[in-house]
Design a protein around this nucleic acid. Structure first.
Lengths: 188, 188
DNA sequence: GCGGAATGATACATTTATGTCTCATACGAG
DNA sequence: CTCGTATGAGACATAAATGTATCATTCCGC
């Protein structure tokens, strides 16, 4: 074992990451949960949590950023070779459905942080353009309001993850159902 | 005016009702809101609130019951002369969409109260049977899982109200879109 | 093994919500 | 008009969460 210095990420994932994960998990289930619960779930003392995140708001802002990073990364990878808008929708669903808990966290937390809020607006904007493109392709009927399309994409994403999380559907099946519901439900 | 004892509800709606309405409104927006906020929105003192509802849990349980009563009444009236399952779905949407805030309250609050919980289960059960009937009528495809249908009816109801509350759609239009999305999206 | 940094446990002060209580007042029935 | 009741305002005690500080211990690099 001569070359032990492999480019691995920190062997013991830093505590910060464990806390963020625990926060996302905990707050997604119960937005009013206490920091003690988060610390406990992370397997960390409450004091240590405060060493990494000065305040509750700090933690939530950081967790939101983390969620958006993960979602952005997943969608960016999935959208790489999508040519049509329909393809983009399909691949985005497949990519995001497994991240439903991250997604749910963002929805359940009202984020005060400005930069987080801006990213969220951008995300909605992106969905709006996707809706426009879907209409232009004739995949979605022209008389369906843009906001209805956007809201439905959001809702079906969340629904699909929800069914997966409840153990009622397999991830691929759920993403399929979401896509089908969207295309048939809003199609011409 | 000899027969003054008409079966009118209390002429000055009792404070209890104002508090319940304020609670539903407040908690639907922010499940973590304080009782002070509720009292203020109801236009009453916090002490008076406690005279009618001993604890926060009491208030939430009562508000939940109230919501369910209203939803039950609205749907019962709407379903009176619905012959097909498709009719039931359509009329239910029209009846419940305007009550979206009541509906949202029930979803946003985790209800501990046992009787409320039971009524909620019954409601889900009813939706499940509706889904079965819709499938039997051939309005909804047989290969769509029951839970997906139920979850989607829930989601579309909430979506429609949401768009109405945001001022983006008229109530009738929103209910129509919800019905269409369901029938086309889950149809054979 | 040593020494510094990070952690866990604990105590503490502060804040906020909750629930109870009292008292003065306003309101309505008689 | 008067009495009883309900209300509003506020004081109060309690509980819980938050944020800070301290100290002993553990862990890691050296």
């Amino acid at each position: 074992m001569y070359h032990s210095a492999m480019p691995e990420p920190p062997l013991r994932p830093p505590m910060r990451q464990a806390i963020l994960d625990a926060a996302i998990d905990t707050f997604a289930r119960n937005p009013g949960a206490s920091l003690s619960e988060v610390a406990t779930r992370a397997g960390v003392g409450r004091a240590s949590l405060h060493r990494h995140f000065a305040s509750r708001a700090d933690l939530i802002a950081a967790a939101s950023g983390q969620c958006m990073d993960e979602i952005d990364a997943a969608t960016a990878a999935a959208l790489k070779d999508a040519r049509t808008a329909r393809d983009r929708l399909s691949r985005m669903l497949e990519a995001v459905v497994p991240l439903g808990d991250r997604y749910h966290f963002l929805v359940s937390e009202i984020v005060d942080d400005e930069s987080v809020h801006k990213r969220y607006e951008d995300e909605l904007d992106w969905l709006g353009h996707l809706a426009d493109d879907l209409k232009a392709e004739g995949v979605i009927a022209a008389d369906v309001p843009r906001s209805w399309v956007v809201a439905n994409i959001d809702a079906q994403t969340w629904l699909a993850w929800s069914e997966v999380a409840a153990g009622r559907l397999a991830p691929a099946h759920a993403a399929d159902l979401a896509l089908r519901t969207l295309l048939e439900g809003l199609g011409p």
